[in-house]
Every structure is written in structure tokens, then in C-alpha cells.
């Protein structure tokens, strides 16, 4: 017993929180990468996450292609979709107010969701857990479904890989330099427009990958992204978009905070992230890891 709560319930909600946090972390990471370079808040991030889950669902239903190939196929397709969007539309909006980028991607999200709602309705479609990850292990104090453990580990791997890509590789150093001063980097002969395109594609692919990971946990439904993206926005406000690591840490922290609220005060569990955001805005307006006021 912890504070009068059975340890199974406590650990169970903690795990749910950690899983939600995994998705907050992956999505806010993508948002932060895109925002850092493009100065665009990608409202379509939730729709791209949903797209990833749906691609996994559809290639299984119609092509018999399973979970593991989907982990590659879906992000690549969503990434390519992102590249097309950036080339055709977003690239035309870099010299106007950043709010237009938000409004454009909002419209895009409505269209994508509208199309899937039209064909698949609003009810969820179950996606099976891959055979290798079914079952549960007994941890002594609780049963851990293997797939849920895998989601937490996989998201950690994704976040660390993205962090290494940005901090330790040539591509990452260009990206960071272009974030600081795009004109100077362009003058050094780096193709900045291409970098912008690839960055948006990468961010979209991350969202798509998160979608595939989410498919067996939550149901695959056209609205799965829009409900999540607003919470992720709050996460991003709390963390501040100045740092990649900040986005990741804040994502996990808030997922856990949400899980714990579910244990102690369930009524407030879906607003706790927003309450924390309000408190952070009062105490530290730039966000926990933010550099810009």
C-alpha cells in the first residue's frame, strides 16, 4: 500500500502514465524539431500520428503486412507525405507571419481527419499486438503486458536516436546551425531549403512512427490524433521548445503526473496537464527548459 492505494493500482496507473508520456515525448520532440528550424507549429502533427496508425492498420488488413514492416513503411510514407506538404505549401509561408503556418496545418489536419472519418467513421478499429510481444511478465508487484513495456523502451530508443542525430551527426550540426542563423548557413553553401524539407519530413515520420507504436495500445481511429495534439501543445508550452532534451523529459514527466492524478483524483486526470501549464506560466513563463521569453 502507498498512501492507502493498493500497489497494483498504483503501479498500473504509473505504467499507463509512462506509456502516455512516451507518446507525449515522441510527439513533442517532433514538434520541437520542426518548430526549431521552420518556426511552424505543426498542427497536423496529430493527424500525421493518426495517419501512421492507419497505414499500419490498412497494410495489415489489405496486404497482410504485419507490425514489424509497418514500423518502417508507415513512417516512410508519412515522411514522404510531409515532404510533399512542405514543398507544395509550407515553403511558401516562410516569409509571412508564423501564425499562417499554424492555420495552414490546422486546415490540413481537418482535411486528413475528415477524409478518414468519412470512410471509417469515428469508432476505433482494433490492431493486434504482434505475436512476439503478446503476454505479460510477472514483476512480483504487478503483471506487465510485454507490449506496453516495449512501447516505453521503443520510445526511449526513438528519443535517444533523435537526440543523437541532432547533437552528434553532420546533418544535426547543419540543422542546429540553420536554427541559429539560416542565412549564414546558406552562405556557407548548405542547401537550407532542402534542410527545411527534410526536417519537416523527419518530424512527420516521427509522428507516423509514434502512430504505429500506438496502434495496438489505443484503437486506430480518425480522432486519435486531434485529442492528443492539444495535450502535446500544453506539454510543449510547459517544456519550452528551446531544447530537444527538454521536450523529451517534459513529455515523460507529464505522462507520469497524469497517471498519478488518475490514482489520487481521477476526476482531474484529463485536465492536470493544463493545470500544470497554468502554474508553469505563472511561475516561469518561458517554460521549464525554455530560453525564449
Amino acid at each position: 500500500m502507498i498512501f492507502g492505494i493498493p500497489i497494483q493500482a498504483f503501479a498500473g496507473q504509473l505504467l499507463v502514465g509512462l506509456i502516455n508520456g512516451s507518446f507525449y515525448a515522441m510527439l513533442s520532440l517532433g514538434l520541437a524539431i520542426i518548430f526549431g528550424l521552420l518556426r511552424v507549429i505543426n498542427f497536423a502533427h496529430g493527424a500525421q500520428y493518426m495517419l501512421g496508425a492507419f497505414i499500419a492498420y490498412l497494410i495489415l488488413a489489405f496486404g497482410g503486412i504485419g507490425y514489424w514492416p509497418a514500423l518502417i513503411v508507415a513512417p516512410v510514407l508519412v515522411g514522404l507525405f510531409g515532404i510533399v506538404v512542405e514543398r507544395l505549401a509550407l515553403s511558401r509561408l516562410y516569409d509571412v507571419d508564423p501564425l499562417y503556418g499554424l492555420l495552414f496545418t490546422f486546415g490540413l489536419a481537418l482535411v486528413i481527419e475528415g477524409v478518414f472519418r468519412y470512410y471509417y467513421g469515428v469508432s476505433g478499429n482494433p490492431y493486434p499486438v504482434p505475436p512476439a510481444l503478446t503476454g505479460a511478465v510477472n514483476l512480483g508487484f504487478m503483471f506487465l503486458p510485454i507490449y506496453r513495456g516495449w512501447v516505453v523502451i521503443a520510445s526511449l530508443i526513438v528519443c535517444i536516436a533523435a537526440w543523437l542525430l541532432i547533437e552528434k551527426t553532420k546533418f544535426g550540426s547543419y540543422l542546429r546551425a540553420a536554427t541559429e542563423n539560416p542565412k549564414l548557413v546558406q552562405a556557407f553553401g548548405v542547401n537550407v531549403p532542402l534542410l527545411l524539407t527534410l526536417t519537416y519530413g523527419l518530424g512527420a515520420a516521427l509522428a507516423g512512427l509514434a502512430g504505429v507504436l500506438a496502434a495496438p495500445v489505443y484503437q486506430v481511429s480518425p480522432l486519435m490524433g486531434s485529442n492528443l495534439i492539444i495535450v502535446v501543445f500544453a506539454v510543449v508550452v510547459i517544456g519550452g521548445m528551446g531544447s530537444i532534451l527538454g521536450a523529451i523529459v517534459t513529455g515523460y514527466m507529464l505522462g507520469v503526473a497524469e497517471g498519478l492524478t488518475k490514482v489520487f483524483y481521477p476526476e482531474a486526470s484529463n485536465i492536470v496537464v493544463f493545470v500544470i501549464m497554468a502554474i508553469v506560466l505563472l511561475m516561469r513563463p518561458a517554460g521549464l527548459f525554455g530560453r525564449d521569453a
Binding site: A89, R92, L93, Y100, L103, F104, F106, G107, L108, A109, L110, V111, I112, E113, G114, V115, R117, Y118
Partner: peptide, 13 residues
């Protein structure tokens, strides 16, 4: 929603 989204995108672009 699709109509709304399309008008949004066209207006912004």
C-alpha cells in the same frame, strides 16, 4: 470538416 479544412488551406496560401 473537409470543406472547412480546404477553405483554410486555400485562404492561407
Amino acid at each position: 470538416t473537409i470543406a472547412t479544412g480546404l477553405i483554410f488551406m486555400i485562404c492561407v496560401l
